[in-house]
């Protein structure tokens, strides 16, 4: 399937997105440093598609997701949503746009207000955006609940009366209440039992085809995004190291980090022997990311240039895939 090239077809685009969190320390609570949580991320998500964003925890995925929705202040770069640059917009102008961009949170316990009934939680987006009257909203809430596979009777109950999976359904119902175009799904199944994960993933897939939703789908392991994504971006320490379509990631991973992530996926068939690539060491602190390629401290193939020069995200050599981008000196110098 040929990828649409025109810019207008991207529902969401980030250009060199940066989010740095200031760190305060000392007696006077001065700014003593920065967490380079997201440090130059450029992504494109086509309408109706899913972009999977994968990386170890702490690498800045959540921050990307929240920055895209302007829930965090940007330190640099741009976010283009529906063709409009929303990076500098004041909150008053963003607010109406929030109808079209929503979020499903990782933690279904924390992200629902424990003092509200499920009915209140689901009615809130409709009240905020002044949709319908009290009676039509009630009907809408009932429909939302049914749509995500919850009983209508949930309306008068409180979040803590439900299991994690059910709560995540409520979170999803809240996200679709406004019929948005984009939903950032921040590890929506990581907190759930494995047995429930696929139910929730299927619900998300159903909703996508039904409502023509676009997903920025965040996960910390590739196995979850495998089935759901059209494209996959692999993130390491605030940067994108590889970007390609979902098939190429498995068939033809270039970046050593991507290869390591793939070899971490458990194989159901023990007779298939994979060459295991185990990463050693921890992710370096985003407070002072290593110079050069950020992955060089853990990369088995690192050589001189990797330690001093930061690799750009470039078209990978010798692939049939149109946009397969890799940020690795080893790969890119093979040209």
């Amino acid at each position: 399937m040929p990828e649409p090239k025109q810019q207008e077809n991207y529902l969401l685009e980030t250009r060199d997105l940066k989010v740095h969190f200031p760190v305060y320390g000392g007696v006077f609570r001065r700014k003593t440093g920065k967490v380079y949580a997201v440090d130059g991320v450029s992504l494109k998500v086509s309408a109706g598609k899913t972009l999977g964003l994968v990386g170890e925890s702490g690498c800045g995925k959540t921050t990307v997701g929240r920055a895209v929705l302007r829930l965090y202040e940007l330190s640099g770069g741009e976010v283009i949503f529906e063709g409009k640059n929303i990076s500098g917009m004041p909150e008053s102008e963003i607010r109406p746009l929030r109808r079209n961009m929503q979020m499903v949170f990782q933690d279904p316990f924390e992200s629902l207000d424990a003092r509200q009934t499920v009915g209140d939680i689901l009615e809130e987006p409709l009240i905020i955006h002044e949709i319908g009257s009290r009676s039509t909203r009630r009907k809408d809430v009932e429909n939302l609940l049914l749509r995500v596979g919850m009983p209508e009777s949930a309306i008068t109950r409180f979040p803590h009366e439900f299991s994690g999976g059910q709560r995540q359904r409520i979170g999803i119902a809240r996200a679709i209440a406004l019929k948005p175009r984009l939903i950032v799904c921040d590890e929506p199944v990581s907190a759930l039992d494995v047995s429930i994960q696929s139910q929730i993933l299927n619900l998300l897939l159903d909703l996508q085809s039904e409502m023509n939703l676009t997903y920025l789908f965040i996960a910390h392991d590739l196995s979850v995004v495998k089935h759901i994504s059209d494209h996959i971006a692999v993130m390491y320490l605030g940067k994108i190291v590889e970007y390609t379509d979902a098939d190429s990631v498995y068939k033809n991973p270039f970046h050593p980090y991507t290869q390591a992530l793939i070899s971490a996926i458990p194989v159901p068939d023990p007779s298939v022997r994979k060459q295991k690539m185990v990463l050693h060491g921890d992710v370096p602190s985003p407070l002072s990311p290593p110079p050069g390629c950020r992955f060089h401290t853990r990369c088995p193939f690192a050589f001189g240039r990797c330690r001093s020069e930061e690799p750009d995200l470039l078209r990978a050599p010798g692939t049939e895939c149109e946009d397969h981008l890799v940020a690795c000196h080893l790969v890119n110098s093979e040209k």
Partner: peptide
Amino acid sequence: SREYVLAAKALGAS
């Protein structure tokens, strides 16, 4: 700083 507040903000709550 809790997530339900962020969730409300994401909905566009004032």
